[in-house]
């Protein structure tokens, strides 16, 4: 039996990004001095040595008044209050779940910061603590919002809104957190019948759109209805589009995903995994996005 195997060499990776220009910002590398002036404050990605502020990562400098920070090209997720995240339960402890959110330390979701089924303002009792596993098990996926950032950098999450909660059927796509654009809304129902949750932590959840009435149940029930083949193909297509965008270093948000989706329509969903096609789709979307933004 023969099958179609394509092996891609790293050398053949096209350098589409290089000729787009737009290199008018300066890249700082570790150990490089940013300023010797004393009246600046050091932010993330910098350190002070002999009175100089120096960069500790590779990235571009961002100045806010007197605060200098370097934004790295690639890093783990560092949370901010109000961010939408998608995470996976790693551990169940007393009164809390530990959630992997692609950050330096696992986040916590306290039992007091979720909506328990049946009555929002119910007191939490010992029985609830014992039945935590009924709500969320290890390896379950959920969407949540960052409630608080602890001193050590770990996050505290909450799901006190009907839009957050356990995720049932869909695909998780993991991209670099720096590719996610902070926007007003991170929940989108795309016109092609697919819903996406773009977590600020680089986890993107792609799922079939369900009716609003069914969804709003405080979200710890799973909808395990069969998903039709066309829906599944659409989900896979969107997933491959997101991967194409990420391989071309394009910001991921609703507009860019829709542009990539339109570019991908001439191919079968499975063909989008072919590296050449992936780059083509991503690159075309990038160019159209540049035109839209101008």
């Amino acid at each position: 039996m023969t099958s179609n195997i394509k092996i891609n060499l790293l050398i053949d990776k096209p350098k589409y990004t290089a000729d787009l220009g737009d290199n008018n910002y300066r890249v700082f590398t570790p150990g490089e001095s940013i300023t010797e002036q004393k009246d600046f404050m050091r932010g993330h990605g910098t350190y002070v040595e002999n009175g100089e502020i120096k960069s500790s990562v590779v990235g571009v400098v961002k100045k806010i008044n007197k605060l200098i920070s370097v934004i790295p090209m690639k890093s783990k997720y560092t949370g901010e209050i109000g961010d939408v995240v998608v995470g996976r339960v790693t551990e169940i402890q007393k009164k809390r779940w530990k959630i992997d959110t692609n950050s330096r330390l696992d986040s916590v979701l306290l039992i007091s910061s979720i909506n328990l089924p049946g009555g929002e303002l119910r007191r939490r009792n010992a029985e609830d603590e014992q039945s935590m596993r009924k709500l969320l098990q290890e390896e379950d996926l959920l969407s949540a919002e960052v409630q608080n950032v602890f001193v050590d950098g770990s996050l505290s999450l909450h799901t006190r809104s009907l839009k957050y909660g356990k995720l049932s059927q869909g695909i998780l796509v993991s991209v670099s957190p720096s590719l996610i654009k902070r926007r007003k809304t991170h929940f989108h129902n795309l016109p092609c019948g697919v819903s996406i949750i773009i977590g600020n932590n680089g986890y993107v959840w792609v799922s079939p759109t369900v009716n609003v009435e069914l969804e709003g149940q405080g979200g710890f029930t799973q909808n395990l209805e069969a998903v039709s083949k066309t829906d599944r193909e659409m989900i896979v297509r969107i997933k491959n589009c997101i991967l194409a965008l990420s391989s071309c270093y394009v910001m991921i948000y609703d507009t860019s995903i829709m542009l990539a989706y339109e570019e991908s329509l001439k191919y079968e969903p499975k063909d989008l995994l072919n590296q050449d096609i992936m780059y083509e789709v991503g690159f075309n979307a990038k160019q159209r996005l540049l035109m839209v933004n101008q």
Binding site: T29, K181, Y249, L290
Partner: peptide, 17 residues
């Protein structure tokens, strides 16, 4: 090598995000 890689993999909207 790091600098040329940084330019290749630059996210076009990183600066104004």
């Amino acid at each position: 090598a790091i600098r040329s890689n940084a330019n290749e993999t630059a996210i076009s909207e990183l600066t104004d995000n």
